[in-house]
Design a protein around this nucleic acid. Sequence first.
DNA 1: AGTCTGTATTGACGTCCGTCGAATCAGAGA
DNA 2: TCTCTGATTCGACGGACGTCAATACAGACT
Lengths: 125, 125
Amino acid sequence: MSKQAGPLALVDLSAETPCCPPLTQRRVPAETAAVLAPAFKALGDPVRLRLLSMIASAEGGEACVCDLTPAFDLTGPTISHHLKTLREAGLVDAERRGTWVYYRARPAILRQLAALLTVQPTPAA
Amino acid sequence: MSKQAGPLALVDLSAETPCCPPLTQRRVPAETAAVLAPAFKALGDPVRLRLLSMIASAEGGEACVCDLTPAFDLTGPTISHHLKTLREAGLVDAERRGTWVYYRARPAILRQLAALLTVQPTPAA
DNA sequence: AGTCTGTATTGACGTCCGTCGAATCAGAGA
DNA sequence: TCTCTGATTCGACGGACGTCAATACAGACT
């Protein structure tokens, strides 16, 4: 349930130390781009962006699918599909507890993506 | 050349002050998600991620298409297409000077995306 | 004007994506 | 074991995406 294969195996996105300098400082190498782009791609859908936000901002840091689904005008399978996409992108983890499945954000990769997009404050020069 | 329509018209992404708290703090509203998701989507392709990085990290803050294209095993039209996608997502601006066209990153939206992905440092609790 | 170079647009192709209904799986409880 | 509920998987459909070759456009230089 919480396993993810794919390109994430190439670079350890679970590391707490960001691996990459900001996109604005050095050219992102092709290999890094190949690894990180799928994460951005997963964020590139409004439903998934909201899902991730609902999960990450939920109290306790986790959210049940049963709480997520009713927030959208979409069927259960569709929400499930989007959650799977977020999981495969390494953005969230899932855990079944009894009847319900809980999702939890993975802060490390979020930090990494944020670091990549970091821009120097405009120099007052 | 530097005009972009679409969803970006709804929210001023050129503002220097980030409009939104981190994704992990408050639920991203549907409208905000609809506006920002296309930007993440544009970053969701390895070629575009590298293009943006090459542009943003170039000295002078700008890069000519003629310098960008040879870095990829792709045809000119394909690179042009990706640059158009980045433009329409509001991530870059283009300007023609004589024979060449120069692209330049838009720091404001990058800051905004980075802010959205910001995560509190893990509390030592 | 004519031509050459750099860039963008068009049209086409195969693939991937978002969505749904139907079927399936996993636990809980009678 | 039956059934009920929550969640995922499967199969299908329409539309969007990444790529290319061919074409068109914009300046510069004859």
